[in-house]
Amino acid sequence: MASELERALFGEVNAAAIRSQLDDFCRRHLGVGIRLVTFHRISVASVRGVMLDDGSRAVIKVHRPEFAHHLEAVQTIQRHLAGSSFPCPRPLAGPAPIGNGVATIESMLEAGSMGDAHEPAVRQLLAQGLRELVSECHPLVGSVDPGPFWLLAGDQQWPIPHDVRFDFVRTALGAEWIDRLAAEARDRLRSAAGRMVIGHVDWRVENLRIEKEAITAVYDWESLRLLPEPVLVGAVAHAFTASWDATSPFEIPTLAESAAFIADYERARGAPFDARELDAADAAHVYTLAYGARCQHSDAVLKIFGEASEEDGYISHLRERARRA
């Protein structure tokens, strides 16, 4: 049964018909068809891992057509990174039209396993890896624009939530304190200090693989954005330990772990942030916590997962931040 997203991308079709469209896409762009689908995930895109008829493995991602320009920038950056041996998949085809959407094909990186960033050594590795990514992308700043951080784009207090299950309008009652803290943080971010960098705003253990104390694979490159360096680091600090993969779940970081990640990043860059940059990182951390709390509140009010608690997770962390202010 096709999901709502896949119906929008491929039409009212079944799994076999979707596979046929993907097989035709691979034959047109790679000259080889699909032998086997190895995994299938749906988030903001329809994603399938495939083994091709020549035995090679690849990942096909199908997005809504409005992402085409962003995907072109992302693939330019990926090619640059892959050429410098950074652990990122190499683009193979696209972005190109398929059905009602736009698709890309990239190589599949499988080495390594998910780490536990609650362990200080893994946390430090993630901070070092993020800094290396920023350094590798530095030559592209000003010539390639992956767009602003979606969470902070525009003038509205909240963006359209990343998942259709979240309804910020219907669940506004009781969330006024979250909205107030978010508004204060956004006001601080309007004049955020720091040099502009290209960075991965969803730099979490779920999107990374580690082997022998090295990052061996990074996924979800659609999360590349152009933003001030301290804002990138503060935003990443709010969730870098998290995995919502049912097979390998990890909790969000504690406030102390978030602060330690920012300090690890400063050491990796070889220079501390100045006072204005630290304020930008702090504001980004508060705003991303508030967004997570708003999502958590929505789930609790709408009883998405039954009688969910509002006394843990992002809400608990945001309350603690408010008490410290």
Score class of each variant (00 low, 15 high):
residue 160 I to E: 15
residue 315 I to N: 06
residue 108 M to F: 13
residue 134 V to E: 05
residue 268 A to W: 06
residue 22 L to Y: 10
residue 22 L to H: 09
residue 98 I to C: 05
residue 283 A to H: 10
residue 60 I to A: 09
residue 14 N to W: 13
residue 284 A to T: 11
residue 91 P to T: 12
residue 148 P to C: 03
residue 162 H to K: 08
residue 47 V to Y: 11
residue 43 S to K: 05
residue 119 E to F: 03
residue 219 Y to P: 01
residue 217 A to M: 06
residue 214 A to S: 14
residue 168 F to Y: 10
residue 93 A to W: 08
residue 15 A to F: 12
residue 202 D to H: 09
residue 30 L to H: 00
residue 167 D to S: 14
residue 45 A to K: 04
residue 122 V to N: 01
residue 324 R to H: 11
residue 129 G to C: 09
residue 129 G to A: 09
residue 89 P to H: 02
residue 248 S to G: 00
residue 1 M to Y: 07
residue 76 T to M: 09
residue 292 G to I: 12
residue 115 G to F: 05
residue 169 V to K: 00
residue 116 D to G: 04
residue 275 A to F: 01
residue 43 S to F: 05
residue 282 D to R: 15
residue 9 L to S: 07
residue 75 Q to W: 05
residue 89 P to C: 04
residue 48 R to L: 08
residue 200 H to N: 02
residue 302 L to K: 15
residue 291 Y to V: 15
residue 185 A to W: 05
residue 43 S to T: 06
residue 138 H to N: 04
residue 171 T to P: 06
residue 136 E to N: 01
residue 263 A to W: 03
residue 194 G to T: 06
residue 309 S to F: 01
residue 195 R to N: 00
residue 89 P to G: 07
residue 271 A to P: 01
residue 290 A to E: 04
residue 91 P to Q: 07
residue 273 F to G: 13
residue 222 E to Q: 15
residue 302 L to A: 15
residue 130 L to D: 06
residue 278 L to H: 14
residue 155 D to G: 15
residue 277 E to Q: 15
residue 170 R to E: 04
residue 153 A to N: 11
residue 76 T to H: 10
residue 282 D to F: 14
residue 113 S to G: 03
residue 292 G to Q: 14
residue 95 P to I: 09
residue 106 E to S: 14
residue 60 I to S: 07
residue 107 S to M: 02
residue 28 R to E: 12
residue 33 G to W: 10
residue 179 D to A: 09
residue 55 G to T: 03
residue 207 N to W: 02
residue 30 L to C: 01
residue 248 S to L: 02
residue 41 R to K: 09
residue 69 H to W: 05
residue 79 R to N: 08
residue 318 L to P: 13
residue 181 L to M: 13
residue 180 R to F: 00
residue 264 D to L: 09
residue 221 W to K: 02
residue 82 A to L: 02
residue 196 M to Q: 14
residue 72 E to D: 08
residue 236 V to D: 02
residue 130 L to Y: 04
residue 103 A to D: 00
residue 176 E to M: 00
residue 65 P to D: 04
residue 39 F to T: 12
residue 120 P to D: 03
residue 147 G to V: 05
residue 160 I to M: 14
residue 95 P to A: 05
residue 248 S to A: 07
residue 215 I to V: 15
residue 33 G to R: 13
residue 153 A to E: 11
residue 153 A to S: 13
residue 144 V to S: 04
residue 301 V to G: 06
residue 237 A to M: 00
residue 145 D to Q: 08
residue 277 E to I: 15
residue 277 E to D: 11
residue 26 C to H: 12
residue 135 S to I: 11
